Amino acid sequence: MSQPKVIVVGNEKGGAGKSTIAIHVAASLLHAGARVGVLDLDLRQQSVGHFFANRQAWLAANKAEAPMPVLHPLSADLAAAPDAEALARFEAAFEDVSAQADFVLIDTPGGDTAVSRAAHGLADLIVTPMNDSFVDFDMLGVVDPVTLDLKRPSLYSETVWNSRKARAAASGRSIDWVVLRNRLAPTEARNRKRLDQRVQALSRRVGFRVGPGLRDRVIYRELFPFGLTIADLSPTIRPVAMGLQHVAARQELRALMTSLGLETVPRGALMAAE
């Protein structure tokens, strides 16, 4: 059997929208007919795990159907476990979902851990959402405080760089890295042009692609308690009133999946038996 494609959603800064991106990518892949395994390594918040638990409960209560991923929940005590034990438990969970999935999606915590670094090393695609501010950019690159010129890559960029080098040395395979401009404000911010220039300069230096994320829309938040996304809405699944914002949100999600190279999932690439 072919190996699943591993997608890691990562950024060592919290609040960048990692879990929102993770659940929307997972739901989109599921609706494209792929089998998706999900591992939530953000053991303190467990937003992705809670989302899919909500999904299962809502679907059962409303006698509705929507695709579910392969889940292997990791208990919160993993965060306090010694590195060797934590890595062994993560590897076992990864092997479990990999055997059942076409894609394995891993949501990582907002911090540097041995398990998070191991997950990055397994990735075929790393997705890094960042908010539209120099506060978020600081985790990727360091700028001069006087001129705002890019000085050097920062902590998280170095983590990804090391993962890419190790992956290339071990298997000869490369890791695709996409930075998403997430939660953009509806109107142009005064510092957007300056930030754009630094992001593009850093992308050339460390080798990531820049893609569109998801705007800060109410619809993304109000569907979370039901375990649903904009990709799930249909004539039979409609827990909130529909409006024009839903059309715009669907277009955003399609643009996001296209930027990640996941807009279509060829049936011949799936391992599921027909």
Rank of each mutant, 00 (worst) to 15 (best):
E91R: 13
A189C: 10
L155H: 14
W177I: 01
G243S: 15
L30C: 07
P153R: 02
A79D: 15
E252G: 10
T113R: 10
V218S: 11
K63N: 15
V97E: 00
L29Q: 01
A249K: 08
W177V: 01
H120V: 15
V6S: 06
Y220E: 09
L262F: 07
R192F: 08
A273W: 14
T128S: 15
L244E: 14
R152N: 11
D176M: 03
A26G: 02
T108W: 11
S133P: 04
E252W: 12
G37H: 03
P235Q: 11
D102L: 04
A272T: 14
S203K: 11
D216G: 02
L233H: 04
A269M: 12
A80I: 11
R35D: 12
L270V: 03
R55Y: 02
I106K: 09
L59M: 08
L214Y: 09
V143E: 04
F137T: 00
A27T: 12
H120Q: 15
V160M: 06
V9W: 09
V218F: 08
L41N: 03
D136I: 06
R194I: 11
Q200H: 12
W58K: 03
L105I: 10
L223E: 03
A241Y: 05
S28F: 08
D42Y: 01
A119C: 12
A16S: 14
G207P: 10
A168S: 13
A123G: 12
D149P: 06
T236N: 09
A60T: 11
N131A: 08
A269S: 14
E85M: 08
H246M: 13
V179I: 10
A86K: 01
I21P: 02
L78G: 01
A79W: 06
L262I: 03
Y220A: 08
V135Y: 12
L180M: 06
V127E: 10
R238P: 01
Q251H: 10
P129K: 08
R167W: 11
P109R: 03
A99C: 06
P82H: 04
P239N: 07
H246Q: 14
R192W: 02
Y156W: 15
G207L: 09
V206Q: 04
A79Y: 06
A119D: 14
V135E: 12
V218A: 14
L155N: 13
V179W: 02
L78V: 04
V38H: 00
A114M: 09
A119F: 05
R267Y: 06
P73Y: 02
Q200G: 07
S28K: 10
M242H: 13
K165N: 12
I126Q: 08
L262E: 08
E263K: 01
T147L: 05
L223W: 09
R192D: 09
L180G: 08
D176F: 02
K63M: 13
D112W: 06
S259K: 05
